[in-house]
Write a protein that binds this DNA or RNA. Structure first.
Length: 424
RNA sequence: GGACACGUGGCCGAGUGGUUGAAGGCGCGCCCCUGCUAAGGGUGUAAACGGGCAACCGUUUCGAGGGUUCGAAUCCCUUCGUGUCCGCCA
């Protein structure tokens, strides 16, 4: 959520930024609304002040047993004006709020222009793509042949875009979860959280999924929403808080299941585990001072990269262009892992700096050393998507006979297993 | 799901219609004092918004929303949350 006062003072800057997002300029309109709101408020406050004074006098007079008929009649008249002014100013301020809450964050200066992912900018490539002396299979075929991945049964009970992992693949998923959480808690000093998976509107408004993107979410019949990412509960831990600046940065990590309706992605990635309605993900969230968020963003990216480095999976890092940037983000790095069967890199992590965009929506603030209160900055990133990590391992570590080697760092989590092979 | 109770400032906790943004305590800040024993005294200490160069002034806020009233933390309604007991269940 943008600060209306900031927009008012930076009309050109603001509209230029929105233009990069292909959003028509609204700053003049909002600013005008705001000015009329301030005018109404001023008038209203004068009348409220009069009413308060008169009511005090009535109270004093009544205590003395004096007659207050005159005063009471005067205030009664005032009251009508107050009510009508209040209605007007409420409706204008609601309009302003409705305007502001659907305007996305401003892209950072170093976010490339562009309307779709083709304009994303590659900034780093890491690792060697595996060379196979045979035609590498896709992960779903590998899983099927191992008899450890069942899309058909999942479809019978849940429909499309669900999967059942069995036996060693279920273990591999669990191993990945533990491995990632251990790295982030022990090496990167994130605090592990086990949050709710169901949240109310307010939480999703805070992180920016609502009110605009309800179509992408699942809703229960009890007015809860299933979280699309742990970013939602993790970031909302600081909602409505005033945090002493000495307590920052706060770094949280969590393993959760993520639920996404995938409305509008019909036909995309219909095969395999790439795009499911539910998947597990280890998330990273940082709450930092404004001046620290740029550095924290780099740190977060390197924390996510660390996972892929240790798993020895080839990847690249891109900066998302304006057209690909999420609603709440000012700048986003995507980490893309190499998938041999597709002969391309696919997203496995997304690390975003939201600046004060989310913190203003959820009223998350800090008290600095001068005792002043200001919004914190929030960042979130995947560290990393578990399902996609699993499928990347299957594809990158596959052998000709259909077996799959286990990355060295995962062996302790796999009961010492070196390889997943077809059960005899 | 049934019954009852409760939601006040960083925390605890008074406050059932009238100069109450809110006693008192704790905590914290600043200042002072100090050879009567791990202390005493003074003073300050909410947020948001609006106006003002500023000092400062004003408005709103006692879970949230609405209502009654000249006036509401206090009364009424709705709602959310919490606690306890009962029922049910992992």
């Amino acid at each position: 959520m943008h600060d209306i006062k900031w927009i008012k003072e930076n009309i050109v800057l603001f509209d230029t930024a929105m233009k990069r997002r292909s959003i028509p300029s609204v700053s003049i309109e909002v600013t005008k609304l705001y000015e009329s709101y301030v005018a109404l408020l001023l008038q209203l406050q004068i009348l409220q002040n009069e009413r308060n004074n008169s009511s005090k006098i009535i109270g004093i007079k009544k205590a003395k047993g004096e007659d207050t008929k005159l005063e009471m009649e005067q205030v009664a008249k005032l009251k009508l004006d107050i009510i009508s002014l209040q209605e007007k100013s409420n409706s204008v301020s609601l309009k302003i709020k409705q305007f502001l809450e659907v305007i996305p964050n401003i892209p950072s200066e170093d976010t490339p222009d562009g309307v779709n992912e083709e304009s994303n900018k590659e900034i780093k490539v890491f690792g060697n793509k595996p060379v196979f002396p045979f035609k590498p299979l896709s992960h779903d075929v590998i899983g099927y042949k191992l008899n450890m991945m069942d899309f058909d049964k999942a479809a019978d009970m849940s429909g499309a875009r669900f999967v059942i992992l069995k036996d060693k693949l279920a273990l591999l998923e669990r191993a990945l979860c533990s491995f990632m959480l251990n790295i982030h808690t022990q090496k990167h000093k994130y605090i592990e959280i086990s949050p709710p998976s169901l949240v109310r509107d307010k939480a999703l408004f805070g992180t920016g999924q609502l009110p605009k993107f309800s179509k992408d979410l699942f809703k229960t019949n009890s007015d809860h929403w299933l979280i699309p990412t742990a970013e939602v509960p993790l970031t909302n831990i600081v909602a409505d808080e005033i945090i002493p600046s000495v307590s920052l940065p706060i770094r949280y990590t969590a393993l959760t299941t993520c639920f996404r309706s995938e409305a509008g992605s019909a036909g995309q990635d219909t095969k395999g585990m790439i795009r499911l309605h539910e998947f597990k993900k280890v998330e990273l969230v940082s709450i930092v001072k404004a001046e620290d968020s740029v550095a924290e963003h780099e740190r977060m990216l390197s924390c996510a990269e660390e996972i892929l480095k240790q798993l020895e999976l080839p990847y690249r890092v891109v900066i998302l262009c304006c057209g690909d940037l999420g609603f709440s983000a000012s700048k986003t790095y995507d980490i893309e892992v190499w998938l041999p069967s597709q002969n391309q890199y696919r997203e496995i992590s997304s690390c975003s700096n939201c600046l004060s965009f989310q913190s203003r929506r959820m009223n998350a603030r800090m008290r600095n050393l001068n005792n002043d209160i200001e919004p914190v900055h929030t960042l979130n990133g995947s560290g990393v998507a578990v399902g996609r990590a699993l499928l990347a391992i299957l594809e990158n570590y596959q052998n000709k006979d259909g077996s799959v080697n286990i990355p060295v760092v995962l062996k302790p989590y796999m009961n010492g297993l070196d390889m997943i092979a077809l059960n005899e």
